[in-house]
Nucleic acid binder design. Structure first.
Lengths: 123, 123
DNA sequence: CGGCATCCAACTGGATACTG
DNA sequence: CAGTATCCAGTTGGATGCCG
């Protein structure tokens, strides 16, 4: 994959880690996944559930995830229009690693915050 | 933490998930952690190991990680100067969740890439 | 309702040059 | 050697308004 196999190849845009990290690091992707864990939602429901996200940005996030095969977008031909978003098996399988990360975060947050405080006060 | 406990609270900057995600999603943090897994390195070694990172950016990354208690920065009073960076126990404990993510990435990359191709050709 | 188009402000990452 | 200072380009996230 790179001149240093097995090592830091994440500046290669096609590196698996980079691809996933770019998506995970996105501000809204993780929120969308967690919101869809219990089943499909329509656009406005997602928007309300997540809160504070502009429609354009939510659309961007959703399209990127759809492109990566993490969720499906179903347009119902009716008036008013209705569009449902649902995790694919691939998208659902991402909940596991995310949960690992979340658990770590919750467990160690106090330590991080404490480190920050002591670092800031030492400056 | 939020009006919807247990749910999407990641737009709160102090949310544990958000704090960790911001760091993980950073372009270089994961590379630094992986580079330091086998022991401490000095600034120039890190730079060479990672490749393609500007000094300023590497410094920023390192400082942010030091602030969060993920690594220690040790200045040796000698000429020429020498500064060693080493993971703390906290930083080292992050390698586990990262490995989970990396494993997922490597396992599912082909599927993601395939999804992208079919999505792009359908447009 | 579910967007797309437009415009925009802020932040991020980076190239380059210089210093204790 | 290990940064700092400066400047800069690209991207991200967002506000607003219009449309099928």
């Amino acid at each position: 994959m790179n001149s240093e196999p097995g090592r830091g190849d994440a500046f290669d845009p096609d590196c698996p880690t980079r691809v996933v990290l770019d998506r995970i690091g996105d501000k809204w992707t993780v929120l969308v996944i967690r919101s869809l864990e219990d089943g499909s939602l329509r656009f406005s429901e997602l928007r309300a559930r997540i809160g504070g996200v502009a429609p354009k940005v939510l659309t961007q996030t959703l399209r990127a995830m759809e492109r990566d095969g993490l969720l499906t977008r179903t347009v119902h031909a009716q008036v008013p229009p209705r569009v449902d978003y649902e995790l694919t098996a691939l998208g659902a399988s991402l909940t596991a690693p995310i949960a690992t990360l979340t658990d770590w975060a919750e467990t160690h947050l106090s330590r991080i915050l404490a480190a920050r405080e002591s670092y800031d006060s030492a400056s």
